[in-house]
């Protein structure tokens, strides 16, 4: 069950913090996603639509347009691999391979232990240190399959993203 009051409070908070009317929806969804841990439950999105007087379809449109939002529960760590050209030619293919192997999931899936979700991303603007991935809000560059393996192991052991 989604706590209606909590969601309403987050909407109010986003309203106060947004400079422009148009920003409110996205800011609200960010807050809600953070609160529920990497996803926006449908029920919470419906409450947002009601509170902001926006059609539900518009909220859904925004949620599906921006890849950082998800309405499906995701893992504690969302790993995003850059799949654009510079990363691809500097060893990105191997990074993808090792991630899929060591996590045992494909893109868009979450590991059974609920720890990791694997996603793709477009260019992060860090081509100088390619290949690049993101884990939650943190960037990792100059990666090799070995470094990726270590990162994953570390997180599995309960280490933080750094």
């Amino acid at each position: 069950m989604v706590d209606r009051e909590k969601v309403s409070a987050l909407v109010e908070k986003a309203k106060l913090e947004s400079l422009e009317e148009k920003d409110i929806l996205i800011n609200t969804l960010h807050k809600i996603q953070d609160y529920f841990g990497n996803y926006v439950p449908v029920e919470a999105a419906e409450i947002v639509a009601e509170e902001l007087g926006v059609p539900k379809s518009k909220v859904y449109e925004v949620l599906t347009f921006y890849t950082m939002f998800s309405i499906k529960p995701r893992g504690k760590y969302v790993i995003r691999v850059c799949v654009n050209l510079p990363c691809h030619v500097t060893g990105g293919r191997e990074i993808v391979q090792i991630l899929q192997e060591s996590l045992g999931v494909n893109f868009g899936e979450t590991t059974k232990d609920g720890l990791f979700t694997l996603e793709t991303t477009s260019c992060l603007g860090l081509c100088g240190v390619s290949p690049v991935i993101m884990i939650n809000d943190q960037y990792y560059g100059d990666l090799t399959p070995r470094k990726v393996k270590e990162l994953i192991e570390n997180l599995r052991k309960g280490g933080d993203e750094r």
Binding site: V42, S57, F65
Partner: peptide, 27 residues
């Protein structure tokens, strides 16, 4: 009524009611 919006992006964009519900369960 704004029942539909364009969902997902790029090549996959398609008109859908909120949360991909069938029309019957939408408003």
């Amino acid at each position: 009524m704004s029942i539909y919006s364009m969902v997902e992006r790029g090549y996959e964009t398609l008109p859908q009611p909120a949360f991909g519900m069938p029309l019957k369960e939408s408003e």
